[in-house]
Design a protein around this nucleic acid. Structure first.
Lengths: 249, 249
DNA sequence: GAGTTTTAAATTGTCAAACAAATCCCCCTC
DNA sequence: GAGGGGGATTTGTTTGACAATTTAAAACTC
C-alpha cells in the first residue's frame, strides 16, 4: 500500500546536500555567495546542526563549497575552476582503474582516440615553448633514467601535447585518462631497445607537430599506441607467470 | 617563526577521509571490503565518533563508500562502475558550465572534437538496434514537439551515437560533455526551418553511420556543429538584447 | 586625534552522551 | 522443520556544551 520504498533510503544529510546543490545549479546560489550559518540552516530545514554539518561536509567533499571559520566566516559557494575540474576527473578515472573494472585495451583505445582527436587542434595551435618542452622530454627519455622517471616523462610528454590543443575542457578530460593509464605504464620494464623505439617515435611525433601535419601525428600515435599496448601485455604476462611460479612454490 | 601555516588548515574529518582514500587507492582496502565500525575507527584515529562520521560522509559523497545500517551493517568500499563514473563526470562538467567559467565556443569545440573522435569507432561497431533508435529520434525531431523535447531528443541522439563506440570510458566522458552543453541548447528557440535543417543532417549522419563511412560522418558533424553554434549565438544575442531592453525600462 | 592593543562577538570545529531506527541472527515456539 | 519474536549490533539523529579561530569594534596609549 505504501507508495515508496527506496526514496526513503537516503539520509537527512544527503537530502539537504542535494537540495543545496540544486540551489547552486539553478542559480539561486551563485559563486562566492555565503550560505546561512549552520544554526539557521538547521532551523530552516527543521533538523539538528550535526545533520546540517553532514550535508555541508558532503558538499565540501565535492568542492561545491568552502568553509571559513571565525566571525564573518561561514560556508561559501566555490567557483570551480579548470584545475579543480581536472582533479575531480582524475580522481574518478583513478578510482575506475583501481577498482579493476577497466579493460586495459579499452583504456588504451580511449587514450589513442582522444589524442587523435586533439592532434589537429594541437597542430594548429602549438606554441614554440611547447615544442621546446617536448624536445626536452625526448632528450630526457634518451638519457639513462629510471623506468619510473622514463614513464613520468612519457606522461608529461602527452600532457604537454594535450595542453597544446588549447581547449580546457578537453585538456581536463584527457589529462584524467593519461593520469589513469599511468599505473599500467608503470608495470613496464623498459629495455634499452624499447626506449630507443619510443623516443624515436616521439621525435617523429614532434616533427609532425612542428610541421602542423595532423594526419602524420595520428599515424605515429596509432603506431605508438600499438607498441605500448604490446609492452603492457608483455609486462602483464610476465607478472602472471611470476605469480604462478610463486603460487606453485 | 612557525614552520607551517596552510598544512594545518584542514579539518580532522578531511584528514581521516584522505587517509582512508589512500588506503583504497593503494589496495589496502579492496572493493566491497567492510571498514571498521565508527566506534573502532574513532578509537583507532584518536578522535570522536562525529569526526569519523564526517570523514565517512565525505567519502560517501564521493561514492567511495556506501553505508548499510543494522547488525552486520557498516561502511563498505564501493566498486565504482561506469554508471557512477559517468554521473560524477557529468556533475563536474555541469558545475563548470553553471559557474560560467566556460567559453561556449570551447564547449562546442570539445563536443565536436570528441564526437569526431568516436565516429570511426561507432561506424565500425554500431548495432542494428542503435540505427533503429537513431531513426526513431529523427522521426521524433521531425514531428511537432516542444522546443524542450526537441532538445532532449537531440541529446539522446548523440548519446546513442556515443554508446555505439562501445568504449565505456569514452562514453562516460562524452556523455558528460553532451550533458553539460544541454543548458546552452535549451536557450535556443527552434524555428520550423531550423528543425528541418537539423533533422536532415541527422538523417545524413545516420546514413553515413549505416554505411560505416566515418569521414562522411565527421563532415556532417562539423557542419552540424557550425549550425548549432550559430543558433546558440543568435539565441544569446536575442537574450542580451532583451535584457538591455528591460534594463532601459 | 591617530595608531595600537585588547576585548568581545560570531562562526565553525570537536567532543560527549544518549536514544531512535534498521537490520540480522539466534532462539524459541508450534 | 518452519515461522515468528526478541535481542544484539550498527548507523542515524538529536541535544548540549566547549574549544579554536577570525573579525571588528572598543578602549587605551601616546
Amino acid at each position: 500500500m505504501s507508495e515508496a520504498q527506496e526514496p526513503q533510503a537516503q539520509s537527512v544529510g544527503h537530502q539537504i546536500a542535494e537540495e543545496i546543490r540544486e540551489m547552486i545549479v539553478d542559480g539561486r546560489l551563485g559563486a562566492d555567495d555565503r550560505l546561512p550559518g549552520e544554526q539557521e540552516l538547521a532551523t530552516r530545514f527543521g533538523v539538528s546542526r550535526p545533520s546540517v554539518r553532514e550535508a555541508l561536509k558532503r558538499l565540501a567533499a565535492q568542492n561545491l563549497i568552502r568553509t571559513r571559520r571565525g566571525a564573518s566566516g561561514g560556508n561559501f559557494v566555490t567557483r570551480i575552476g579548470w584545475q579543480q575540474a581536472r582533479e575531480q576527473f582524475e580522481a574518478t578515472a583513478t578510482m575506475l582503474v583501481v577498482m579493476g573494472d577497466i579493460d586495459p585495451d579499452a583504456l588504451a583505445e580511449a587514450r589513442l582516440t582522444l589524442l587523435s582527436a586533439i592532434a589537429p587542434l594541437a597542430a594548429e595551435r602549438r606554441l614554440p615553448e611547447e615544442l621546446a618542452a617536448l624536445k626536452d622530454e625526448i632528450a630526457l627519455q634518451e638519457s639513462k633514467v629510471s623506468d619510473e622517471d622514463f614513464c613520468a616523462s612519457d606522461v608529461r610528454f602527452y600532457r604537454i601535447l594535450v595542453e597544446a590543443g588549447r581547449n580546457p575542457l578537453l585538456s581536463a578530460q584527457m589529462a584524467s585518462v593519461i593520469e589513469a593509464i599511468q599505473p599500467l605504464l608503470n608495470m613496464i620494464i623498459y629495455r634499452a631497445r624499447d626506449r630507443d623505439t619510443i623516443a624515436a617515435r616521439h621525435t617523429k611525433l614532434l616533427a609532425a607537430l612542428n610541421a602542423q601535419d595532423a594526419p602524420a601525428m595520428i599515424t605515429v600515435l596509432r603506431d605508438l599506441n600499438d607498441y605500448t599496448v604490446s609492452l603492457v601485455r608483455e609486462a602483464q604476462d610476465a607478472r602472471e607467470a611470476r605469480q604462478n611460479t610463486q603460487g606453485s612454490n
